[in-house]
Nucleic acid binder design. Structure first.
Lengths: 254, 254
DNA sequence: CGTGCACTTGACAGCTGTCAATGCCGGTGG
DNA sequence: CCACCGGCATTGACAGCTGTCAAGTGCACG
C-alpha cells in the first residue's frame, strides 16, 4: 500500500464496495462483474489533478486508496472544497449529468485509482439492478451530506461550521474503516481545511483553537483527534444521520 | 389546475417526466408503467407539511403542480431552505438513504402531489433500467446544484449569492416551462427567500435593491423579473451548467 | 546556509446578524 | 362601515463576526 493507514477493507472490488455494502451485502456475481468492469490501477501523486471543472469528464474513477478532494473555483481565485474523498468513494458521478465536469478533482495524497468506463455503467443498470439501486442510494446519501453542509455553511458561524465538518469527516472515516479510534489522519493543509469549511485560514485557526480550548477536538500536523464527539455533534447542531440498512424495496439479487 | 401559471407539460405521468425527459425521450412502456405506479393525486394547501425532518419518510412524492420547498432547521430556530421544488420534481429521494427524513418538505403554494410507493421503485430498477438510469442522472444533477449552492454560500457575499439563487431558479423554471419569458412567479415571502440565500431579511432586501439598482433583476409582489441574465450570471460567477442530452451509455429502452 | 512554503498572529475595515420601531395590508369581529 | 389585530415588509442603529492584508516565525529542502 502507498500509505500505512488505509486498511484493505475497501479493496475488494477496486474501492467501490466499502460504500455499497452499507446498503446490503454484495453478491458474488455482482462483485465479480464490478471487478471485471474496473480498469487497471493507476497511481497518482499528491496534488495531481484527475480532471478540472469545465473539462469533458474522462469517466468515473474508483478511489482505491488515498485522499482526494473535489473543489470549485471562482474567477478571483476563491475556492470552495466540496468534499474530501476517502478510499472506497466513486469519483465523478455528479458530472455524469453535465456536458462538462462541475468539479475539479485533485489528489491530496498519493492515490491509487481505477477507472470505470461509462458503457459498463449502462451494463450495470441492465444486468445488476440491485447494484444499480445501491449506487443510486450512495448518491442520495451524498445529497444529504451536501444538504447538511449547505445548511451549516449558510446558517452557522465559524466554530460551529468547523465542528460540523469534523464530525462529518469522522463519521465517514469511521464507516469506511470501522476500527478507527478517536483520531485519524487528515493530510491536508490549513488552507485546504479553510476552503472546506468556507473560511479563511486565520479564522480557521481561531476556530480550531476554540475547539481545542474546550477539549472538543485537536488538529496537529496531519492528524485530527476527536476529544468529545457528542459535544462536537451538539455544537454542530446537525443530527447524527443513520444510513438505512437494507431497504426492503431493493430489487432481489439474481 | 390549482394555479394559472403551471403549463401542463409536466403532467404526462404525474409530474415525473419533465425532469426525466431531459436525459432522453421516454418510451411508451416506460411512461405507462410510471403512470400506473404513481398513486392518486392529493391536494395540499400552502404551508402544509408533507413530512418533517426526523420523521420516517412516508415515501416519494411526485410534485404535479405548485411550489414546494425542502428545509433544514437548527435548534435555535434558524432555517436553511435547501431547494425550491417545481412541478415535475420528485420529492424525498435524498432521504431514501437514511432511516429518518433529512429535510422538511412544505408546500409554498397549494400543490397537487402523487405518491410513489417504494416497492415500485424496486420494480422500476428491475424492469426499466433505462428509466432507473435517468432517475440516477436526475440525482446527479441535483448534486451539482447543491455543489453550486455550497460554493456560492461558502465563498461569496450577499448580492452575489442572491444572484446565483435567482439564476438557478430561472434556469430551472425555464427548463420545466420552456416558454417562460424574462419573468416568473415566485410565491414566497421575503423570509423564505432569505432562508434560501442564507441571509437575514434585512440583507436580502439590500441585495435585492442592489440588483434592482443595477438593472439586473427585480422582485415585486410574488413575481421575479430578470432584466439582464448574462450580467446576473457573470455576477454569480458560476458557469452555465449544460445538462447532457442523451448519454451514450444509457441502457437501451426495451 | 539560503530559499520557499506553510503557518501564526494582529490590526483594521467591511460585511452581516440582531433587534427594535414603524408602516402596510388583509382579515376579523363589532 | 369601521376599529382592531396579526403577519409581513421596511428601515436603521449597533455590535459582532469575518475577510483582507501584512509582518513575522518555523521548518523542510536544496
Amino acid at each position: 500500500m502507498i500509505d500505512g493507514t488505509s486498511p484493505n477493507v475497501a479493496r475488494d472490488a477496486g474501492g467501490a464496495t466499502a460504500r455499497l455494502n452499507a446498503f446490503g451485502a454484495l453478491e458474488a456475481s455482482e462483485l465479480a462483474d464490478l471487478r471485471a468492469a474496473a480498469g487497471p490501477e493507476r497511481v497518482l501523486g499528491a496534488e495531481d489533478t484527475l480532471w478540472r471543472e469545465g473539462d469533458r469528464l474522462p469517466g468515473l474513477s474508483l478511489l482505491v486508496e488515498g485522499w482526494a478532494a473535489s473543489t470549485m473555483s471562482f474567477g478571483d481565485g476563491r475556492r470552495q472544497m466540496l468534499k474530501i474523498h476517502l478510499a472506497g468513494d466513486v469519483l465523478g458521478m455528479p458530472s455524469l449529468a453535465m456536458t462538462a465536469a462541475a468539479e475539479t478533482l485533485v489528489a491530496l495524497s498519493p492515490v491509487r485509482v481505477r477507472s470505470l468506463p461509462l458503457y459498463s455503467l449502462g451494463h450495470l443498470f441492465e444486468s445488476h439492478p440491485r447494484l444499480a439501486a445501491m449506487l443510486f442510494l450512495v448518491s442520495q446519501e451524498e445529497r444529504v451530506h451536501l444538504m447538511d453542509r449547505l445548511a451549516s455553511v449558510g446558517r452557522t458561524g465559524a466554530t460551529q461550521r468547523l465542528a460540523a465538518v469534523i464530525v462529518h469527516l469522522r463519521d465517514r472515516v469511521e464507516r469506511s474503516f470501522p476500527d478507527t479510534g478517536d483520531s485519524f489522519r487528515l493530510p491536508i493543509t490549513l488552507e485546504d481545511l479553510a476552503d472546506l469549511v468556507g473560511l479563511d485560514t486565520g479564522r480557521t485557526r481561531q476556530a480550531l483553537d476554540a475547539l481545542r480550548e474546550e477539549n472538543l477536538a485537536g488538529w496537529s500536523g496531519d492528524r485530527m483527534t476527536i476529544l468529545d464527539l457528542d459535544a462536537l455533534r451538539r455544537l454542530s447542531d446537525l443530527p447524527a444521520r443513520q444510513v438505512v440498512d437494507d431497504p426492503a424495496w431493493l430489487p432481489a439479487g439474481e
